[in-house]
């Protein structure tokens, strides 16, 4: 394959999914800069391995690489987890303003609190549940697609989604002080 054709094919098949890649990385890392690092690394890898891509689902293919890149990074950065926690605290105040920017001004007052609680609950969710929730609810991927990205059976996708939602409901109940 000619190199400029490769780049064109790559741009057509993989570039359009950059928001999906970033959203997943952002939910996995919790940090904007970290998510950009992961996505950048994932894209370089994706380009390098693009000869192995034969026109399957470009989003699934890319998200699989993003996720693998994340877990390698996660593994390497665990030693600094305390530092990361500190960073997360800093980020969470930014996150709130992110939400405010996006929301409809009249509804901010009502939504602000419940959205903040929900966002917080998602962050507290163990990572194996959080990733399937992001893929299902935010990316609207099918069980089959999720199974392919994570390389687990579809039955496991199903049970993780079920348990993830239950846990999220439990975290929300606690953080809400029992009020629903």
């Amino acid at each position: 394959m000619n190199d400029s054709t490769k780049k064109q094919r790559f741009q057509a098949a993989v570039m359009p999914h950059i928001n999906s890649a970033f959203n997943l990385a952002r939910w996995l890392t919790h940090g904007h800069a970290d998510a950009e690092d992961i996505v950048q690394e994932a894209y370089l890898r994706a380009f390098k391995f693009f000869d192995g891509f034969h026109g399957e689902d470009g989003r699934v293919w890319l998200l699989c690489i993003v996720r693998n890149t994340f877990y390698t990074w996660y593994q390497q950065n665990k030693v600094q987890s305390q530092h990361t926690q500190f960073e997360e605290e800093l980020h969470s105040s930014n996150e709130e303003s992110d939400i405010l920017d996006d929301a409809n001004p009249e509804r901010i007052l009502i939504q602000k609190d419940s959205q903040r609680l929900l966002q917080q609950a998602m962050r507290e969710l163990p990572i194996e549940f959080r990733e399937v929730m992001v893929m299902r609810e935010l990316e609207d991927l099918s069980y089959k697609q999720i199974a392919e990205i994570i390389q687990i059976p579809m039955g496991t996708v199903m049970s993780r989604l079920g348990r993830g939602r239950k846990q999220l409901a439990a975290i929300l109940a606690v953080n809400n002080g029992g009020a629903k």
Partner: peptide, 12 residues
């Protein structure tokens, strides 16, 4: 539905 409608989708 809560997650679908009320959590943030982070765009690049």
């Amino acid at each position: 539905a809560l997650i679908k409608n009320n959590t943030k989708y982070f765009e690049a």
